[in-house]
Design a protein around this nucleic acid. Structure first.
Lengths: 166, 166
DNA sequence: CTTATCTTTCAAAAAGTTTTGAACTTTCAA
DNA sequence: TTGAAAGTTCAAAACTTTTTGAAAGATAAG
């Protein structure tokens, strides 16, 4: 396999994976391109590298910076902005978990909380509250677990995790 | 808050959450409806409960069964099929992890494997291979971790996990 | 200043995904 | 058997998300 073909395949695969992880395809492809480029790329390099419009490039770079998956790097003497990818996969996972926790788990928790307030002491209401409470409890646990995961150090975590579970 | 309003909110929230987890909105709403219904529902009950078409109902019930999130239950003397939700959240998470591992992580691993075959011993190629190898290694670990997670028992896991991490 | 280069914005178009509904198939009680 | 009820399929329509491109906004060198 040629290097160029390999790079292309990598970008495609990373894009596909990303699109299942709340990162849209282009966003993930930009990240992939930066991962395998040697050195920082400008918005224009990215636009040309992926054959996408400038608007699209700009939007998605900003989203990536927002997620903490890409950093802006200023090169002395250069007019343009340059960008580099976060290359530590553990950090990438942490950033994604952090974002998604905030955007998904927290809103759910808020709703479940509210739902405890439904009125009525008939059996149907009690049953409903029970289901909601169960889920609420579970998502509380999930939230704590993920918070710890995000806080923990990668080597330690993976090491311990792997041994413990088994 | 009224019970009906509460149920409605729950279904909406579960639908939103699901759509970020590879389960489409309707699929997740069906699961939610079943979670809070007392007793099994027929396809028609679900259709009416959520105001969706029969086709849509059918497609999504089958997908849910496929994922292992809903079971078919035959009621003696009844012509129709009835359905119940998997209510154990831990099991729900396991099913989802299993599916997504199969559909996302495994294909990625296959590609990364192939990518080790790119030819060339120039620096650029070596650099590329290094990045790919890193990611390959990481996804191998993720895969094992998730596999263990899926295999482990819920109470034990959550208990230990929570104590260990921290 | 002025101008050329780079970045941002956003409405409209394209692409992708989900839903519908009508036709078709299966099932089972009579 | 037969036919009414239940379940399935799939192309087209509705809806959602992403992408484009053109215009406007910044910025820095001359």
């Amino acid at each position: 396999m040629e290097l160029e073909e390999g790079k292309h395949k990598f970008i495609q695969s990373w894009g596909t994976l990303g699109s299942h992880w709340g990162i849209n395809r282009t966003m993930a492809q930009i990240h992939a391109l930066l991962l395998i480029s040697n050195g920082p790329l400008s918005a224009n390099d990215i636009k040309e590298g992926l054959n996408i419009s400038m608007g699209n490039t700009n939007m998605n770079i900003r989203a990536l910076i927002d997620w903490g998956l890409v950093y802006k790097e200023l090169i002395p003497g250069e007019r343009k902005d340059f960008y580099v990818a976060e290359k530590d996969m553990w950090e990438v996972v942490r950033r994604i978990v952090t974002q998604r926790k905030k955007k998904e788990l927290e809103p759910l928790t808020r709703v479940l909380n509210e739902l405890q307030k439904v009125e009525g002491d008939d059996e149907e209401t009690q049953e409903f509250k029970k289901v909601v409470k169960d889920i609420h409890l579970f998502s509380g646990k999930a939230n704590t677990a993920l918070e710890n995961l995000v806080r923990s150090d990668s080597k330690w975590f993976i090491g311990t995790f792997m041994k413990m579970i088994k």
